[in-house]
Structures are given as C-alpha cells and as structure tokens.
Amino acid sequence: MRLNGVAIDETFAEAFPMKGTRIVITAHRPAWAMHAAVAATGFATSVIACGAEAGIERVLAPEETPDGRPGVAVLLFSMSTKELGKQLERRVGQCVMTCPTTAVFAGLPASAGEALPLGRNLRFFGDGWQISKVIGGARYWRVPVMDGEFVAQESTAMVKGVGGGNLLLLADDTDAALAGAEAAVEAMRRVPGVIMPFPGGVVRSGSKVGSKYAALPASTNDAFCPALAPLAAKTELDAGTRCVMEIVIDGLAEADVAAAMRAGIAAIVGRGADAGVRRLSAGNYGGKLGPFHFHLRKLAPEGSEA
C-alpha cells in the first residue's frame, strides 16, 4: 500500500495493557503549572527502567480546571497498580507539592475506576496541621506550606490503559526523519487521552525484547538499524533508508491510541514521500504477547492511494 508515495507496511503495532491515570495540576500562573508538570513527568520515558511512562497531555484554560486557575493535564502509566501508586505519590510529592502555588486534582471522574491515592498520604507532610474538606462529594486535603496551602484531591481514578502503540518512520536521512517525526508528534499531541512519553515524543533507540546478555530485558532493534542492514541476520530496511525514528504512544483507551496513530500516519502521508519519510512500519512481537493490535493499513487515511 502506497499513499502519496509513502509505503505503508502490512503490519501492526502490538500494544499492552497498562494501568493509567490523569491528574490536573493548576498554579497561579501557567508557567508554574508547566514547571510542575515537566518535573513530575521527567525520567518517565519507558517502564523498562523508569517505573512509569508519563507525559503532558495538554494545557488547560482556567475555565477547564476545578479551581479556575491555569493548568496542565498529565497522564501517568505503569505496569501494575502498586507501581503506579508509588510513582504517582513520589512524583506528585516531590515535583508538584514542592512547586510554588500548585494544586493537584483528579483528572478522571471517581466512577471511572479504582481510586489511587493522590493527597491521601501526602497530607502527612502537614504534620498534624493538614485539613480535610469534602466538597461536592470529593475529599480534598489542605496542607499548610510556606506560600499558603497545598490543596490536593484525596484520590484519582485509575483506568486500564494501553501502552506501547507505535509508529516507525523510515527516512532518507536525519533531517527528513526529524522533520517527519516532529510533524507526526505535533498532530498526535492534538488527540486527547494520549501521551508520547519519549523526549520530544520520539525515540531513536527502539528496542526488541531480550538480548544476548542475560541481564538485559531489552536491546537494540537491530532489524531497523541502518548500520546493521548489510550485517544482521534479518533486516527490515531497504537500500536508501539511512535513519529510522519511532513514536511510542500510551493512551487511556484503545480508541485513543488508534486515533493518535491515525493522526500520525495522516501527517506523514500528507507530507508525501518527497519530504523524505518514504515508509511507515510498526513494532510487534508476532502478535502473541500484546492483546492490542493496531494495523497500520486500517488506520491509514482513505482516498489518497497512489
């Protein structure tokens, strides 16, 4: 299948169930909400070693937040309920509570899923001066801090999300690969309910499962490394592909990840093969490991076949 000159492989991205949640961080000024969100989602690119995958979903206008201040919506994913709870508590405790003027709220309705502690344990920072308040059925904690008080909702709902949706961009060279990846990420960021957890949304060290070294759970995706194209036992690359970038997507629901992949594919196809990204592929493990399969050709825009 070739759309606007861009070849779309007959393959699928294989994704896994993850536990995920959304939190809303607000602050006196937009910049401080962003500082907190950036810090809280730092070092959260892959569960392989970070414990969580996290990112900024979008910026919120004052009229969209519970307290009428500017805010940022953040998504956080992990492999287990226990790990997600631990990561959430640490990140909010160290990166949001510490950031001037911030407050933190659940970003999903309580009915969406199991409650995950948000302010429930952070309140003890108040050393007995913390105040609990139930407003409109939700409990909030008010912890006195040096700039006033830190308000945190007691808990946020956890949902079964989808992690590891992905798109591989096969390009002529570094410039073309970066430009294509940037355009695709920009389009995907407009989709609600998803994050692209890697730096700038893009990963260049895509991995395969396992390694020749017993201690490593993952290692370089040799089938997509241009340097190994003539050497490795199996390569997926054609001659002329000198640079490959991967975009990984985590979403609160399967449909969100599919929508993001659809937006990314459309962005690449819209730019056309002449922009340098000549082929789209995806990473999978034969379909036996992950229950979610996103077939690229089913997500491709219709009517532009050429």
């Binding site: 607000t26 519970p66 307290d67 009428g68 201040r69 407050a103 308040k133 407003i135 409109g136 909030y140 008010r142 006195p144 700039d147 006033g148 008080e149 308000v151």
Partner: peptide, 26 residues
C-alpha cells in the same frame, strides 16, 4: 491572612448553587 484561594474557589463554586446569599460567592 495567608492565601487560601484554591480552597476558596472549590468551596465557593460548590456553595454558589445554593443561590440566595451564596450566589456569586466565588
């Protein structure tokens, strides 16, 4: 006189629905 703006907005917005003397509280 410490800042309780966040908590006040949460509470006042909830109480505004009562109307009467509480209308426009936030």
């Amino acid at each position: 006189d410490s800042d309780i703006g966040v908590f006040w907005q949460l509470l006042a917005r909830e109480l505004e629905g009562l109307g009467g003397a509480f209308a426009g509280l936030a």
